Measured scan of single mutants.
Amino acid sequence: MSRVPSPPPPAEMSSGPVAESWCYTQIKVVKFSYMWTINNFSFCREEMGEVIKSSTFSSGANDKLKWCLRVNPKGLDEESKDYLSLYLLLVSCPKSEVRAKFKFSILNAKGEETKAMESQRAYRFVQGKDWGFKKFIRRDFLLDEANGLLPDDKLTLFCEVSVVQDSVNISGQNTMNMVKVPECRLADELGGLWENSRFTDCCLCVAGQEFQAHKAILAARSPVFSAMFEHEMEESKKNRVEINDVEPEVFKEMMCFIYTGKAPNLDKMADDLLAAADKYALERLKVMCEDALCSNLSVENAAEILILADLHSADQLKTQAVDFINYHASDVLETSGWKSMVVSHPHLVAEAYRSLASAQCPFLGPPRKRLKQS
């Protein structure tokens, strides 16, 4: 649940008159999402009104509101027999009622949201009550392989729920002597030191190019640089560091992050930047690179990204790559990247197969709970 924001200063709310007192009302909304995959969808019983329910879910471990999704594969009634019906059901509720908006969509073979439908307002739910769409999607369109909505005969539904909580009022009075504290510009100011090479005390040599930097900042941000300058190493004695395995453009992006906490060109060089972040123990930059690479996972590059993640101990990226390969196994196994990995990294192939087997055979063990970014 997000923290209630402070109200904007009255002088910034309007260029008009300023009242002596004010009130700011925040209506709290808890948002969460749920993904439900139905394997072997074409084998569902086709009687009209037949119901399939998901397991229950909530916004978190401490949330007492429990929900589930309900599907009628062949419609709810005679009117909707040519459609799939989809509903959000409130299973248990400690209150007399709650209000919530919802959005349903289908994830296609690429994991993209399609055929989205959402409620136009927050509906009133009581325990045992459901709301949804009797005519969510035509069955003939859903079952047509050309539309790519049932890869490997799996129907994957994605649901986003927004639950309306209580409202909170914050009130106060205006004073004539309003003090406005300026925003912190530390990142910009440190970035200026790097860009202008002011007050530098060490030189970093990268592929024949020299960059002036500040030992204190490098040591504070990177345990690797800290070790170089702290001990009686040649880098500490000469205040000069030779860097041979990072390209200059990648190095500059890494230094921008060290000084400012930002990497504006990360998406263009996420793979190389991940390697640099791993070498210099820049954990936050490493996770930022993992996130960017996750966003660009595809059938063509899944094997290469899995190898990269394994090489640099990028655990979150590795998990996402394995899950992606499992979901698109029939396509990924035909790529040149996968065939190369079979020869060069057989242990990763074995890991992917083990994960695929456990996903398809849940009876082999208890269900695993899916539970950071600093």
Rank of each mutant, 00 (worst) to 15 (best):
S2C: 01
V4W: 12
V4Q: 02
S6E: 11
P9L: 02
A11H: 02
M13E: 01
S14I: 06
G16V: 06
P17H: 09
V18F: 03
W22K: 08
I27A: 08
I27Y: 14
K28G: 15
K31L: 01
T37N: 06
I38W: 04
N39E: 05
F43S: 08
F43H: 14
F43A: 12
F43D: 13
C44Q: 05
E47M: 03
I52H: 04
T56R: 01
S59E: 12
K64Y: 13
K64D: 04
W67D: 00
C68Y: 11
C68D: 09
V71A: 02
D77G: 07
Y83D: 05
S85Y: 12
L86Q: 14
L88W: 02
L89N: 15
L90E: 01
L90Q: 05
C93W: 12
P94G: 10
K95E: 08
A100V: 06
N108W: 11
A116G: 11
A116Q: 08
R121L: 11
A122R: 05
Y123F: 14
R124P: 15
V126Y: 15
I137L: 13
I137E: 13
I137F: 02
F141E: 14
A146M: 07
A146V: 06
A146N: 06
N147K: 05
D153M: 14
D166S: 11
D166R: 07
N174D: 02
K180P: 08
R185L: 08
L190D: 05
W194D: 04
W194N: 06
N196D: 09
F199G: 15
T200W: 15
K215I: 14
I217T: 10
L218F: 05
S222R: 00
S222V: 15
P223I: 03
F225G: 00
S226W: 14
M233T: 11
K238W: 08
I243Y: 10
E247I: 04
K262E: 07
M269W: 10
D272N: 04
A277F: 00
A281S: 06
A281W: 11
E283V: 03
E283G: 05
M288C: 12
E290L: 09
E304C: 10
L306W: 15
L308E: 06
H312Q: 03
A314P: 08
A314G: 08
Q316T: 13
L317W: 00
A321F: 00
D331A: 07
D331Q: 09
E334R: 11
S336A: 13
S336F: 05
W338R: 00
S340C: 12
M341L: 07
V342A: 10
V343Q: 10
S344C: 13
P346R: 06
P346S: 03
A352M: 09
P367I: 05
K369D: 06
K369S: 03
S374R: 12
